[in-house]
């Protein structure tokens, strides 16, 4: 268990020593900021609805761009061979890397607090939905990170890992919007699978334990799949 932290710490160092981390965080802030402020004054409402509305889509591209390195790079430079021969369990490696990604998502969301704080100066902002939305955003981010981690464990090519990860994330994000012409029962079923459906509950300020369970199930399934994919390499 204590072996998780050195792995996590090393990955975090690796992210923040290279310029890629800062580029990705800047792109994230720019995109979400632009989408948010471009409609903010038109709607004339002191809420973060628009920011949260687009978050699943932005994250579908941003998160896999971070996670694509996790395993793919270790495979391609060969350091995975050293990592796998340390006296640690496979799950410790996976959790260590996942924990590092969770920290990264946290640091990525942190600067966006600038939006609600600046709004609260000019309007009457209800902080309840904002806090709830941020919890949802973090859960959404880390569940996408688990998807990206899985994609990265499949291949030593980072671009492929990014594409696979992005595709799965986009599919989960858009699932509820693709079901216009489906019968009611099918829609409810696929709605439950859609990450956007669960995340929008958070952004409305509804804290439902079922939505939390949904995100943790996604994380569990994809971390487990990562374990299988790595075991298969032996």
């Amino acid at each position: 268990m204590q072996r998780i932290f050195p792995i996590c710490l090393k990955d975090l160092k690796d992210y923040f020593y290279s310029p890629i981390a800062y580029i990705i965080i800047s792109i994230f802030i720019l995109i979400s900021g632009w989408f948010f402020f471009s409609t903010f004054f038109i709607l004339n409402q002191a809420s973060l609805r628009d920011f949260f509305e687009l978050l699943p889509i932005t994250m579908s591209f941003i998160v896999p761009a971070i996670t694509m390195r996790s395993f793919s790079e270790e495979f391609s430079i060969g350091s995975y061979e050293i990592l796998a021969t340390f006296p640690v369990k496979l799950n410790d490696i996976i959790f260590g890397k996942f924990l590092a990604l969770c920290c990264f998502i946290f640091f990525m969301l942190l600067p966006t607090l600038f939006f609600p704080i600046s709004i609260s100066f000019i309007g009457n902002l209800d902080w309840g939905p904002v806090i709830c939305g941020y919890i949802g955003a973090f859960l959404l981010g880390i569940s996408y990170a688990s998807i990206g981690l899985f994609a990265s464990s499949l291949t030593k090519n980072q671009i492929n890992a990014f594409i696979i990860g992005s595709l799965i994330c986009i599919l989960l994000s858009l699932m509820d919007k693709l079901l216009l012409f489906m019968p009611e029962s099918v829609v409810t079923f696929f709605n439950y699978l859609s990450s956007n459906f669960h995340f929008q509950n958070f952004s409305k300020g509804l804290f439902d334990i079922r939505d939390v369970i949904y995100f943790f199930s996604i994380i569990f399934i994809f971390l487990y799949a990562t374990n299988i994919s790595l075991s298969y390499r032996k």
Partner: peptide, 18 residues
């Protein structure tokens, strides 16, 4: 195959910790 971004000292402490 070891991590290019780290310093030698950092890498050795990482290996030690793990």
């Amino acid at each position: 195959p070891i991590y290019k971004n780290l310093m030698v000292y950092e890498y050795l402490s990482y290996v030690g910790a793990i």
